[in-house]
């Protein structure tokens, strides 16, 4: 839903919505595609791959059947190539906020960007929940969030003529330092060490701004916040020479992302310890037509493994076919030998 509570005028009508572009949401595109179900995929991250791409892109996975070793990013890239023939539409950088059943039996899905969908069925592949920025554990920080403290920049204007403190050592911190410097009244970059993980080119640009005295670079860590009524006035910074009080009225902390269940909790589904219970035949939730696969679901014996999620996607798709094509019989076929499947895959 957009800020004023309205939704986009013309909904996108589709067979299936997949919530979450992690490895399991991606493979669901494949399995649904084989049974002629077209999907739109939505993820809050700006890229596909879920945990694999966000948390461990360069680390090896050893238990994907048939792939003795593959990195998180490698698996994501391979899945993207594998699902390409099915032409799913991706809506990245959007969080699904609302999911509800309509009177005509279809499901309405609305994102925080106001994109509005109507689908015959929904697959929740939300993994460990939506990726959300990590909140520094500083006393009273909640009071400033959205007024003085931001975890992302939605409107540059919020920082115009402000005294900005950017905290972190990765690409987000560097990029926003470079982008906000021209419009801020003054800008300081704070990092715990004089060594940055971000792209070398951005580090160089940042260093040049420091040399030209256009920004300040501070080495230290945040220790306390000061202000009132949501208006930040200063941050206490621990440095190796002792505590420093740094006046500022905008703070942008970049400490990476963590997974929080998020809106999934508000969709009227049965939940069990933040997981969505499903049956093990169709992987359907307590609401018929809404399926849950991958790390987000629970059933007796559940293992949070990628390979288990792949299996769940295959069985889910059989049930999905009955919803999207009621009365149509589904033939069991192999991709190796079925010319109709190969046609869908674009290999024959």
């Amino acid at each position: 839903m957009v800020a004023d509570g309205t939704v986009s005028a013309a909904p996108i009508e589709t067979d299936a919505i997949i919530i979450g572009a992690g490895p399991i949401g991606l493979f669901a595109v494949f399995e649904l595609g084989l049974v002629d179900i077209k999907a739109h995929v939505i993820d809050i991250l700006g890229k596909p791959g879920g945990q694999c791409a966000e948390l461990y892109p360069e680390k090896p996975i050893y238990d994907i059947p048939g792939l003795p070793i593959v990195t998180g990013q490698g698996l994501t890239d391979a899945l993207m190539a594998q699902i390409k023939p099915f032409g799913a539409t991706f809506h990245l950088g959007q969080r699904v906020d609302a999911l509800q059943k309509m009177d005509d039996g279809r499901f309405q899905v609305v994102t925080d960007a106001g994109t509005h969908f109507l689908a015959k069925m929904v697959v929740i592949a939300a993994g460990g929940g939506s990726f959300t920025p990590k909140r520094p554990p500083l006393a009273g920080i909640e009071a400033y969030e959205g007024t003085s403290i931001f975890y992302s920049v939605r409107r540059m204007d919020d920082f115009k003529d402000s005294d900005v403190l950017v905290v972190g050592g990765g690409d987000s911190a560097l990029d926003w330092t470079l982008n906000l410097q021209p419009i801020a009244n003054n800008l300081t970059l704070l990092h715990r060490r004089d060594d940055f993980r971000g792209a070398p080119h951005s580090v160089e640009q940042m260093r040049a701004l420091v040399r030209d005295k256009k920004i300040a670079l501070l080495i230290g860590q945040m220790a306390a916040l000061e202000g009132n009524n949501g208006a930040l006035t200063a941050v206490t910074i621990k440095t190796k020479d002792g505590d420093v009080r740094h006046p500022c009225n905008r703070l942008l902390p970049f400490f990476g992302l963590t997974m929080k269940l998020g809106p999934v909790a508000n969709w009227g589904l049965n939940l069990q310890e933040n997981l969505v219970p499903v049956d093990t035949e169709k992987f359907e939730t307590s609401t018929p037509g809404i399926f849950a696969i991958g790390d987000i679901n629970w059933y007796p014996g559940k293992l949070k493994l990628i390979l288990s999620g792949f299996h769940e996607a295959a069985l889910m798709s059989q049930a999905a076919h009955r919803i999207v094509y009621p009365g149509k019989k589904l033939l069991f076929q192999y991709t190796t030998s079925s010319s109709s499947l190969q046609k869908k895959l674009g290999v024959s």
């Binding site: 990590k134 520094p136 050592g169 990092h191």
Partner: peptide, 11 residues
């Protein structure tokens, strides 16, 4: 690990 420590509090 040093890179990851950037994400810890009060290092």
């Amino acid at each position: 690990e040093e890179d990851m420590l950037d994400f810890a509090f009060d290092v």
